[in-house]
Amino acid sequence: MSILLQIEDMSVSFATPRGNLKAVRGVTIDLEAGESLGVVGESGSGKTVLSRATMGLLPGSAIRTGTITYKGQVISDLPANEVRDLWGTGMAMIFQDPMTALNPVRRIGSQVTESLTVRLGMSKKDAKLKAIELLKRVRIPDPEAMLRKFPYQLSGGMRQRIMIAIAVSCNPELLFADEPTTALDVTVQAQVLELLTELRKEFNTAMILVTHDLGVVAGHTDKIAVMYAGDVVEYAPTRQLFNNMKMPYTEALLKSIPRLETPTGSRLPVIEGRLPDPTKDEPGCPFASRCPYVQDKCRAEKPPLTDGGNKHFYRCWFPIGGAK
């Protein structure tokens, strides 16, 4: 398989009145064509900034360093308008909030056909036919009537399907899905995740699925990067990660998920404390103050990303189950 996307040592920071806010701190990730990567972390871990920075969707105040290579071409140095040419056909994004991501004053039809006419140069008539086909593909009942509707007439699940239809309309090679199901009901969430996986397999699209829920990525990704305070703290193939967890943070995140097996009335394990201040550079491991296994070394020295074999990387001095 060929490498589709390579992110090397990417950092993103924002100038704020309180100082330089470091949202992403030297992240290195790669993705093969057709592969699916889950990026998992709490609010404020930098997972959304990571995906937006890769696509070139950061506000002007952001400072980005590092290299992004897309299909062998370094895109991190390209001017914004040339990166934009990749949108739609190369990379596309599904945003978190289906309520606000669609334009409220334009009909669904004009929003779905826009990228078809602009990017693929289709005629209006062809674009409409293709749009109907796309809406069928994402299982929207009565697609022709749907084209004439406005977003406010649709449920959240329907709007998210429209967002997916728009994102896949030009057969992108890389799909960013930023918390695509967080705003949806569990039943609809399950449907939308199934749909994404099905579309991805059909068109061999690579996907970066950003979420705070390890349960969501378990069945829908090939590998997972767990982020904490701007760092990737664990990076491994999905099965390897779940079966052989090394990072105490990943373990804590997994334990805090309420499950159907949880005995009624039992206390859920929680991660005490909060993320460190992103404007400060404290010595030591950023998770040290919340880690149940913390030792003196963790407070003094920041652990490097360690290669544990089997494509499994972690950032911990005292990994679960011991070092290799």
Binding site: V186, L214, G215, A218, G219, H220, R239, R259
Partner: peptide, 11 residues
Amino acid sequence: GSVPIPDPDRA
């Protein structure tokens, strides 16, 4: 059945 299970073998 819709509750996501954080286990790739049972997901």
